[in-house]
């Protein structure tokens, strides 16, 4: 099996992170920001998976990187659930999803 070099994996992860960050900083739509945050999170998960390829497995007493990845996927799902709930509430209260308009916590 051809091993993909760690550098490539990390580069991909870094590219994903930069892409997500770019999305978070530039988008105004709450849903798009949520999606960008998901991208950032996936970059992080990819990192875990990549490092776990090159580290000792659980049998050798190493950190189970892939299991952390699974936990993080679950975490991302809950985050989406909470995030979408906020999106819904925001939309209902303000009639908009533009974060630039939702600058005050109070109504």
């Amino acid at each position: 099996m051809t091993t993909i070099p760690l550098v490539d994996l990390l580069s991909l992860s870094g590219a994903l992170f930069a892409l997500g960050l770019f999305g978070v900083l530039t988008r105004r739509n709450f849903i798009l920001i949520l999606i960008s945050v998901e991208v950032i999170m996936n970059a992080a998960i990819l990192n875990f998976v990549a490092f776990s390829l090159f580290s000792p497995g659980p049998a050798a007493g190493g950190i189970p990187g892939q299991s952390i990845a699974v936990i993080l996927i679950g975490l991302a799902a809950t985050e989406v659930a909470v995030g979408l709930a906020i999106v819904l509430a925001l939309n209902r209260l303000r009639g908009t999803l533009n974060v630039a308009e939702a600058i005050q916590l109070k109504l």
């Binding site: 960050l21 978070v24 900083l25 920001i33 974060v99 939702a102 600058i103 005050q104 916590l105």
Partner: peptide
């Protein structure tokens, strides 16, 4: 403290 989430994020970065 503008309330604009994106700019907070930018400051975080």
């Amino acid at each position: 403290q503008t309330g604009i989430v994106s700019s907070y994020a930018a400051w975080v970065v």
